[in-house]
Design a binder for these strands. Structure first.
Lengths: 238, 238
DNA sequence: ATGACTAATAGTCACTACGACTATAAAGGG
DNA sequence: CCCTTTATAGTCGTAGTGACTATTAGTCAT
């Protein structure tokens, strides 16, 4: 392969982040208002160019911090989604974008950052037409996260370090858009080894309206065996 | 975002393909012997530069045809794996590579192609140290395919248009490295709607040593509900 | 307090899925 | 013809799951 022959090609590499969280019982995405052309004034996913000395993962974390001013990225779950490389996806030049799905518990307040006029959490359904192909990236992220809830412990990434089973169930219900039976959900989660583990001596007392719930932490397992399948929308046999 | 500021950055975008097939009851990967530096003479995954006017998917198909001389790419299943972007993954320049997992039934004979001195099917275990980070890409592809066999109909991508349940079972056994109970596997596959459908009036007669097996085609389903979980290596509860 | 309301947790029951089997059928090879 | 091989049929006990009912332990309004 002749490298130098291609070294002058006008390829730019960017990252785009579909950052999801759960607020007020609804799925929210983190969007920024673009300050520059193209699509100035439109809403878009946070993202930006990968620098010459960093990986896409590093660039994703940096851009997220820069554009949205989020300070606490400790609980951030970051995961490659896929790479979008259609030649015409950016009207100005050839841009290949590595997209990420990111999950965050307890959404912190974003501040508009360097390249973005403003950053805001927007309910997933109301994340209107976005710039570039970001609508599709966001939809792909939602689909991927929904699928991974079935067979991985990903749901805990939406939760703070200590959480109740009710909160965990809300994650599933919110992302899937379904209602789950509480006792059955509880039985299933507790029967899956390594999914969650009880916090030694605590129960959330004040705040909630009902009986205080026990607190749990994410367990050591990464995958769910057996999986927690989402209910069949219609005549699916399982 | 100031596009022009980055337009000169020496980013090259390539594709790499982990092409898998099953031959003689073993998992094989398609490798090429590199003709140029770096890593001249080493074995590597097929791949190459993305052209300015094509997507990564298009480039993947083109490179596969060019480098390995495979003519029949009709049954090829191509799927993005992930993008590898560590700054030092190529010793000569900054290369971001979009990796693909590809599945092919009935491995055709490859011919060395344009950039590759030679192309060959190599048993997965004997795919020694490869150039760049291709060992990792190949391992990631294997892991991904193994996982997707559990909850998607991907296994049929390893099979010709018409196949027996024995062949389908061999796909699972080969990729997972396990042995499955034949009657149970059969029951499970036939009980999953849309996974396979019987070919109207046929049964493979000659060739095999035992009772002739019925022929099946891939069904319309894309995902498996419920999933076909691989047996627990040890004390996993399911 | 006291009773309504809410949410967490415990438990039941029937049905289905699945792992581990045994048995039979239909080919080929000595 | 028997023996081997592979496909297919069927059985049985158990674990997992959906749809429930019941109890417990808090808050809130009166």
């Amino acid at each position: 392969m002749d490298y130098d022959k291609y070294a002058h090609e006008p390829f730019a590499v960017t990252v785009d982040l579909a950052v999801l969280t759960i607020a007020e019982g609804a799925l929210h995405a983190l969007l920024v208002e673009r300050g520059q052309e193209p699509y100035a004034g439109h809403w878009a996913l946070p993202g930006g160019f990968v620098h010459p000395d960093e990986s896409a993962e590093t660039a994703a974390r940096r851009e997220l911090a820069e554009e949205t001013g989020l300070s606490d990225l400790s609980g951030l779950h970051l995961e490659q989604l896929r790479t979008y490389s259609e030649p015409d996806r950016d009207p100005r030049m050839r841009v290949v974008s590595v997209a990420f799905a990111a999950l965050l518990p307890d959404p912190p307040e974003p501040h508009g950052g360097s390249d973005a006029a403003e950053a805001r959490w927007v309910p997933y359904d109301k994340a209107g037409p976005l710039a570039f192909d970001h609508d599709r990236i966001l939809a792909d992220a939602h689909e991927r996260v929904g699928a991974k809830l079935e067979y991985t412990c990903l749901a805990t990434a939406f939760c703070p370090p200590e959480f109740t089973l009710g909160e965990l169930q809300q994650v599933y219900e919110t992302v899937w858009g379904t209602v789950l039976d509480r006792p059955n959900f509880r039985r299933k989660v507790l029967a899956t080894p390594g999914f969650v583990e009880a916090v030694p001596g605590a129960a959330r007392l004040t705040g909630g309206r009902g009986k205080p719930a026990a607190l749990y932490r994410a367990g050591p397992a990464a995958t769910l065996h057996p999986p927690l399948l989402r209910p069949s929308p219609e005549g699916r046999p399982a």
